[in-house]
Design a protein around this nucleic acid. Sequence first.
DNA 1: CGGCATCCGGGAAGATACTG
DNA 2: CAGTATCTTCCCGGATGCCG
Lengths: 233, 233
Amino acid sequence: MKLEKITKRPRGACKDSSARRYDDACGAAHALDLIGERWALLVMRELMFGPKRFSDLRADLPGISANVLTQRLERLEEIGALTRRKLPPPAASHVYELTPWGYEIEPVLSVLGRWAARSPLHDPTLPLSAASLMLSFKTMFDASRAKGLNARIGFRIGDETFLVRIHGGKCDAARQALEGAEVVFAGTARAIAAAVYGGAPLAALEAEKALAIKGDRALAERFTRLFPLPQKA
Amino acid sequence: MKLEKITKRPRGACKDSSARRYDDACGAAHALDLIGERWALLVMRELMFGPKRFSDLRADLPGISANVLTQRLERLEEIGALTRRKLPPPAASHVYELTPWGYEIEPVLSVLGRWAARSPLHDPTLPLSAASLMLSFKTMFDASRAKGLNARIGFRIGDETFLVRIHGGKCDAARQALEGAEVVFAGTARAIAAAVYGGAPLAALEAEKALAIKGDRALAERFTRLFPLPQKA
DNA sequence: CGGCATCCGGGAAGATACTG
DNA sequence: CAGTATCTTCCCGGATGCCG
């Protein structure tokens, strides 16, 4: 039982120190060297609306383990995509924030999202984070359906608030106070997604207490129809 | 010797069949479930200019192993991003070709490439495939530098030929015969990249026999300046 | 030759427990 | 709360062998 442990090593080579990189000048390949590891891009996604703490990231990325999150944050800092800051005295905690170049990852998230939305295997009923939902609005917004619309729609998801502005055929979203919102959705990101992408009637979601709407109801209804999903491939 | 094969499985759980997926409705997360595994996106990149055989892919993706390539091709076929066809009788071989939806991955490659080009760690002198080079032209083309230019530039790389058309402020590339090319570059993709992105003088590359240019030399010179790299982050 | 099956070694990912 | 330490499982990469 205590036999051949080390003896033979002629097979199963191990290209020494060359790590696991694509040695490829192609930009896409280099991007994968930088952020192609598991969870890396989703960590950046969660930071797209501003800094967060370690535990916020853990909570918003269900399934990631603490050690993997630590490794990804270290790597993202190493490549210059995020910075780690110490909060002022009251809180002895750290926050992680994307650098300007880090924020430029947004088009990658958009384009990947649009591509995957055409996948027959895509299941829009799975849970999602608040950041994912806000990004999906920016990604899936259909300007032609928002002709002449100028609105501020608020969202209260957990203890965060977001303001989505629709103005001049553009759709922008930010994590900020709800001042000036003509209507406010309060609920889980999943419930809001059910209304916008799943076609669930607002009244039904409210009846289930999954969603609460305050303000201009007609605007809320119209809002849910501004984000058509593409045809499946 | 035929004992405990399954017996103990108390720790290091294995969430049964849930595999290693992000259970996340976010489009980007789903995209990573589909093509986030190592090499998957680069396999698609190599197919962007038309079908290839297994051995072509292996040759153009230095470092991939046969079993991994097999797995990736199976997965890409499973999700509907590519198809596997049998060639007509003379050749008993197979070719792999992207589906229309698979071809739509191009913006992902572009956007990733543009983002990574700003990375301080990006090394444009590494080797690259012909497909990568042609994609980089489409990605990095600067219309403002090509004002009034209308040209067909040919490339002979290994035993493949590509035609790049610059016309009306657009830049397109295809794997096809070189008919109508006003100038033809022949050499490795790396040598051509050295001229376009590394600023290497054409004369020097020709002197080293790394590159051969036939046709309109002035056009060749101008072509090399149409693809500026972005500022580093 | 083309493509796949299989085995092996190493390392990354994941779960849990633990520390400041 | 914010991570670190450790252990297990699984993926990746290389080599070899089979089969048409």
